[in-house]
Design a protein around this nucleic acid. Sequence first.
DNA 1: TTGCTCACG
DNA 2: ACGTACGTGAGCAAA
Length: 888
Amino acid sequence: MEKLIVIDGNSIASRAFYALPLLSNSAGLHTNAVYGFTTMLLKLIEEEKPTHFLVAFDAGKVTFRHKDYTEYKGGRAKTPPELSEQFPLIKELMSAFGIRQFELEGYEADDIIGTLTKSAEQEGKDVLVVTGDKDMLQLVSDRVTVAVTRKGISEVDRYDPAEIQAKYGLVPAQIIDLKGLMGDSSDNIPGIPGVGEKTALKLLHEYGSVESVLEHADEMKGKMKEKVRDHADSARMSKEIATIYREVPMDTDWSGLAFSGFETPELAAMFRKLEFKSLLERLDFSGAGGAASSEGAESGPAEELVVRLVDADNITDLIGALQDVSALHVEAVGDNAHTAELVGAAFHTLEAGYYVPAAVLTAPGAEALRAWLADKGAPKSTWDRHRAELVLAWNGITLAGVTFDVMLAAYLLDPTESSLTLSGIADKYGALHVAPDEAVFGKGAKFRLPEPEAVAEHLARKADRISRLDVSLREKLEQADMKQLYYELELPLSGVLADMELRGIKVDTAGLKQLGDELAVQIERTMTEIYRHAGMEFNINSPKQLGEVLFEKLQLPVQKKTKTGYSTDAEVLEKLAPYHEIVQGILHYRQLAKLQSTYVEGLLKEVRKETGKVHTYYRQTIAATGRLSSQYPNLQNIPIRLEEGRKIRKVFVPSEPGWSILAADYSQIELRVLAHISGDENLKEAFTNNMDIHTKTAMDVFGVAESEVDANMRRSAKAVNFGIVYGISDYGLSQNLAISRKEASQFIEQYFAVFQGVRQYMDDIVKLAREQGYVTTLLHRRRYLPEITASNFNLRSFAERTAMNTPIQGTAADIIKLAMVQMDERLKAEGLKSRMLLQVHDELIFEVPPDELETMRRIVPEVMEGALALDVPLLAEVDYGSNWYEAK
DNA sequence: TTGCTCACG
DNA sequence: ACGTACGTGAGCAAA
């Protein structure tokens, strides 16, 4: 059965535009109307399964209607540029979908549609018209259904003759009479003033048409009679204008409108350009056409891909081809690379993809393959080399010789990439599609490894994509001037990290358990006290229950609300402390409970029974600024600020008796970086003279001598310095210091008066971000800030603060990463047994044998301070002890 | 899963 | 006038 869908292009585009927030891609192109249009198309294709398709657009500024009625559409607001710039995209999109579009100078889309539906009717074919305009209901017939968008674009009301009868009591042809009487303010059609839908319908039910209503004007009473008589011409003209012209001189032959598959490479490319990531994931672009695949796995006629499943008998084939392997992919199940279960590895050559299951990879017979993996001189590309190295290492296999890692490259090219998956990156950079892992393996409870052939196919395809992306991303890194950052910093660092993590850090589990026991006693005591004050028992961990106790039962004054109820965070509780004794108990309980659950119980769960060590997993591709992050366990947030928590550090001990823990941290690295990149003379001078920066700031901001700076002034100055680094706002500073906004604003003004270079930097960097769309660090690390041009104040302000902060935080990250790579080289070069264990953003932790202590106390600060030459000196302070707590 | 809270730099 | 400090991860409660 043939079925034609005709879309009123202008109408649907503007509906979509106003229904969706003003989305834009990273290039700043607005895409909301395009996106809405696309989702509507996909829905129509799926639900209606049309055999033919057409989108009609208005063309030209003057249509024949204007000749008769110059005011036509006069009241309509001008199309906003954010919408008109999307029309070319929509038209491009239609081509990519393989959908014909049509427009004709001097005619509106309505008329084209009217003409087409008329001919379809005559030929006895079915048409569905999709529009946002109810005027089109006049086209409805037994053959023609009109779908009108309702509230946004996702929902439509479908009208056939019966529906129009039910809703209006009219036949479709009477819709124009309805318009003639009631008019349409959006098109500036007057109708009869004072006649709305209700009156118009009443009149039509009685008289049937505009003409008949006018003829019978004399039968009417009072006001109505007057109105109809006075505006008879207006009504006649309005009806005429509302009537869709169905005789447009055009080809009404359907055969050119045939619609078949749409999942073409062109459409995939279009989606990538528009950054419609979810749609790229949802649709199956791997085959040449066909319907959207719900299976997700590769299906249909895919590209040529020879896949060989390797077993003990044929492994020599792969071994013989190893010199041709350019890329490999190691697959493992589990988020934590240290515990993930190895599935297998795929090896890509131009001739074939080889898949080696874990059992074969680790068994006797694969020695030559493992030797190749460990061969530094055998170059290979990977996706997430860091993870692969860890997974293989835990399976007794060494990985070396990785010369390019696609994931790391994709991260540098856009560190805020929301789907840093091979599938997502392949789509983004125009490599052939590969199904997302969830589509092959399922996720959550539905996770299941399919049969080996399917795994082989998927992993071989991944290895293929890695080798393709290798080529294109190398070039992109060069274009972005990030070659050095990549090859000399990030790529070597990934190996350094893997080494650190594999070594792990020893935990004194007995000491930790004892700490837990002591906490348990205190927690019990504190709970009892809280229940006594509350007069009831409840779950203190539940913000909901706690809120009810504090603000309903005890009637304490509500300070702040969250979107789900009362806020009970520490800031609120501090304010409530004077009102009721229970509050202090709750604060204490929170502190103890955090230590117990996160740092005692949580840490104990991560300790390996066999070695008594924890092996954190540093993530190199998470933070937008270039920092590392740490998981399983997170060793970058071990307590230090409060003494009770700081004791946790006592359980981190050297792995060998007699050794020490040595810690070195950069002093004020971010403010030193700021001094360098802003070039502020005053700030540079402060660091060159190695002054206490907060005291110096206090002296300048408050205009006092060093001897006059009291603790409070220094505290304020410190907060101002933090604020500067974060991208200052008076509100933020006022919150932090609990002062008025006005006072905060004065502080900031004073600061900028004496650090004028800093003010200049802040102004310049925001301007630069607006101009080029991104900011960079000293080592050319990049972060895009598309929202810097947003009209929404919040979004824009956030982007502006980020523009100020990212070069500072990011450059500090660059520097310590450099220090890590250099430190690793230095330890090897000097043949030291000392080991680098941890990085905590501005500090490095080592374990050191006694005979190397003096050397390390000298070398570590030397390397850290010399990692990168700035206009101000870098300073690293070092200390050591028998555990992390003592190394302060 | 999402939201809240809190640990760190 | 708008409502926020920048960057992370983990545990718990409540859907």
